[in-house]
Amino acid sequence: MSNAPRAEHHPLWYPSASLETLQLRADMIHRIRNFFARRVVLEVTTPVWLPAAAPERHQTPPRCAGGYLQTSPETCMKRLVAAGSGPIYQIGPAFRAGESGRLHHPEFTMLEWYRPHWTLEQLMEEVIELIRTLMTVPSVTVMTFQEAWVRWVGVDPFLSPLEALVTPTPALVEWTESDRPLLVDRMFVERLEPALAQLDTLLILTGFPPWEPGMAELDAGPPPVARRFEVLLRGVELANGYQELRDPIEQRQRFIDANHHRGEDGKDPLPIDETFLQALQDGFPPCAGVALGLDRLLMLAFDKATLGEVMAFQAHVADHGC
């Protein structure tokens, strides 16, 4: 599934982005640094190689030299926040083993930042302001995950009976309540995402299902939701923000649960990053944090069809065994 729209006359060694696009990319990164400098947010650089992970069910860090390449700089940046860094941001590489497609690349550039003592709503505003300084956004729409489903798919991901969530793909299977996350995920990619792709608005979804909380706090509801937001433009997920979970016991339990599910899915469990849990234990302030896929933002800002067109070199999937 290599989607490189490589011009026929370029040799294989040639960059996948045009040199003009790389100039625009550099300008954009410069503007992002200015944005944060004006707001006195400290730029940091944390290691991309980690001896242990923050296990998630559906994300796998590539193995590397006895450890892992980070899927995001989250744990290290939160250790800085716990140490009293104040607001921080980072622009750097993140890795996802096995993810490759028009909107996925096994190595990509992440813009991640943390705002101690901010609420999720304050951070949402800042994300919108940043995107608006980087590109023209026709309008902004904020709604809950549940509202978006009801409006564009006509079903409620939390409350509709399971039969309403079954798409034609899986023929003749008995479903139980434990399959709801799978059915919702599948209907998301089959029905909601194509509908969102038609919208010309910057869409902020809030209140995500509690079964995929990531490292966000839970809200008891009803309905119970993860205190997360996602930013989407033309159906492309650009950013994912959390009201950060602060409880070390619940955080440990989520890592253990994630590893349990990984086992069920036939994936290796991942060693838990104890240094991160120790930092939570010693005291982590109320904090909102967000990760933004920089290549996707550039792809949309420059009106390109694939990530490869905004990256100097697109990896060929076979090269990425790491």
């Binding site: 599934m1 998630e56 559906h58 096995g98 497609g101 799978l182 995920d185 998301f188 995500f208 997920e237």
Partner: peptide
């Protein structure tokens, strides 16, 4: 569904924190 088809397009897709699919 007991019928023969040819794949004309295949895409890797993955919602936010959700699982990976091939569409």
């Amino acid at each position: 569904d007991d019928l023969p088809w040819i794949i004309v397009d295949a895409q890797f897709v993955k919602p936010g924190k959700g699982q990976a699919f091939t569409k």
